Deep mutational scan, measured.
Amino acid sequence: ENVVSAPMPGKVLRVLVRVGDRVRVGQGLLVLEAMKMENEIPSPRDGVVKRILVKEGEIVDTGQPKIELG
């Protein structure tokens, strides 16, 4: 899985990584606000952040790609 998608609709509060960052499985990639709760979205695997496809403040839909890992 190279693309991390939104598990639920919500607002991107914070992006916790930058392009080029090495990430580990379970590491937080971003914080999504859904139903007035903050949810940290974890990396599904070890890898390197290739692209960030969302911006802080953006509203995302379920299944929308957010971060691409290499």
Rank of each mutant, 00 (worst) to 15 (best):
L30D: 01
Q27Y: 02
V4P: 04
D46T: 09
G70N: 12
T62I: 13
K55D: 08
V19D: 04
D21K: 01
P42W: 08
R51F: 04
E68Y: 11
E1D: 13
E38Q: 11
N2Y: 15
V4K: 04
R51L: 07
L13H: 03
R45H: 10
E58G: 05
V12E: 01
S43N: 02
I52A: 01
K50C: 13
P65T: 08
D61K: 15
P65Q: 07
D61N: 13
L30Q: 00
D21S: 07
V48R: 08
G10Y: 00
P42F: 12
L29N: 01
R18Q: 13
V60M: 04
D21C: 09
G20V: 03
S43A: 11
G70T: 14
R18W: 04
D46F: 07
L69Q: 02
S43M: 02
L13A: 05
V17R: 00
K11W: 07
M8L: 09
I52H: 00
V48Y: 14
R22G: 08
P9A: 12
V54E: 01
L13T: 10
G70L: 13
L30Y: 05
V60E: 02
L69F: 10
A34S: 13
S5M: 12
L30F: 11
E38W: 08
K55A: 11
S43V: 02
A6W: 07
T62D: 07
M37T: 12
S5L: 13
R18T: 11
D21P: 00
P42K: 15
V12R: 00
I67N: 03
G28F: 08
L16E: 03
D61A: 14
G70Y: 15
S5F: 14
E33S: 07
P42T: 14
G20A: 05
R22Q: 12
G20S: 05
P44D: 07
E56H: 06
L32N: 01
A34E: 05
T62H: 09
I59Q: 11
E56D: 08
E56G: 05
V48N: 04
D21E: 13
I67M: 10
E40S: 09
E68S: 07
I41F: 06
R51N: 09
L69R: 02
L16Y: 04
D61Q: 14
V60D: 02
M35E: 13
D46R: 07
D46Q: 07
G47P: 01
L16G: 02
D46W: 07
G26W: 06
E58A: 08
E56S: 08
K66E: 15
G70H: 14
V12W: 00
M35Y: 12
R18N: 13
A6Y: 06
I59G: 05
V49K: 02
R14Y: 03
L16W: 00
R45F: 13
L29E: 01
S5W: 10
V60C: 09
D46S: 10
P42H: 10
L69N: 01
E33V: 10
T62F: 12
D21G: 03
I67W: 03
G20N: 07
